[in-house]
């Protein structure tokens, strides 16, 4: 109910980004999910970070509280089948090697992206490299249904774990690149990620309630698209909407941006797969 009151205040134009968020707490099947945390030390302009769940209507919030209501779970179930499905020249499935099932990946999502052998790697990279190198199978399309279902299944194993992405050491140059992208004002509208998601979160831009753009719930089931949405697809959509030439999904720019944005979520619990408007 408090979110309703909060929205009413917003409609009167009395908002401030320092105004308290709603008092709702997210609990999924008895497990409490942290949706508000002290901002990580590297964040110079925010004191508190909030999950995107906190900015959604009570109707949308409700869909994430119960896994039976969460439309993303249909895709997670499909990924469980894919996990067992033999594909490629080597006659293997995921479970041929990962014999303990997806549970083996508990905690992995919370630490991604990460640097492996000097390369910045995101979950889609891990999945496709195993498909190609171990299974002899075709790589999946970045934002394809199979790929994002599998990213969601692996992410779900970390649900309730705090995001904890490494930003120093090998990761530092990638993180710096991502930060630079975050603050770049792209396109004819000359807007950066920060313009909306750091400077103006909590306010309305036309009919949209601006969140902090946290990605701890990705892939998310987006109601207006009725499917799981990848992080890079969401980045692409935002940059496109500045009337800019976007970067490609799976580009090094978006890997770097993903690392930086994920690090802004450090301290929030993984919510994958979340539900958004």
């Amino acid at each position: 109910m408090k979110i309703g009151a909060w929205t009413a205040v917003a409609m009167l134009g009395l908002t401030s980004v320092t105004l308290a968020q709603d008092g709702n707490t997210l609990s999924i099947d008895g497990e409490t999910i942290v949706t508000e945390a002290v901002a990580p030390a590297h964040l110079e302009n925010l004191d508190t970070i909030y999950s995107g769940w906190r900015f959604r209507t009570s109707e949308t919030q409700a869909l994430q509280i119960d896994d039976f209501d969460n439309p993303a779970m249909i895709f997670v179930d499909q990924a469980l089948d894919l996990f067992e499905a033999v594909d490629g020249s080597e006659g293997k499935s995921c479970s041929s090697c990962h014999t303990d099932g997806p549970e083996e990946f508990a905690g992995l999502h919370a630490s991604m992206p990460k640097v492996v052998d000097g390369k910045l790697v995101v979950m889609e990279d891990l999945i496709n490299s195993h498909r190609q190198d171990v299974m002899g199978a075709e790589p999946w399309k970045w934002s394809g249904a199979d790929m994002q279902a599998m990213v969601a299944l692996i992410g779900l194993q970390s649900r309730g774990t705090p995001m904890d992405v490494t930003i120093d050491g090998d990761a530092a140059p990638f993180w710096e690149k991502g930060k630079e992208l975050y603050y770049t004002r792209f396109g004819q509208l000359e807007m950066s990620c920060a313009n909306c998601h750091e400077d103006n979160y909590g306010t309305m831009i036309r009919a949209d309630h601006l969140s902090q753009g946290q990605i701890n719930g990705f892939p998310t089931y987006r109601l207006k698209q009725a499917k799981l949405i990848s992080r890079h697809n969401r980045f692409r959509g935002c940059i496109r909407d500045t009337r800019a030439e976007t970067f490609a999904e799976g580009s090094d720019e978006f890997r770097a941006l993903e690392l930086y944005v994920a690090s802004r979520s450090n301290g929030l619990h993984v919510e994958t797969p979340a539900v958004r408007q």
Binding site: T184, R185, F186, G187, Q188, L189, E190, M191, N195, D199, N200, R236, I239, R240, D241, T242, R243, A244, E245, T246
Partner: peptide, 24 residues
């Protein structure tokens, strides 16, 4: 200011072709 410049034609970063996401 975050406000777009409504009568400006140069100095953009990665100017697109309207809302297509493609390059101008």
């Amino acid at each position: 200011s975050m406000m777009p410049s409504f009568y400006k034609t140069e100095g953009f970063i990665r100017l697109g072709d309207e809302y297509t996401g493609k390059a101008h």
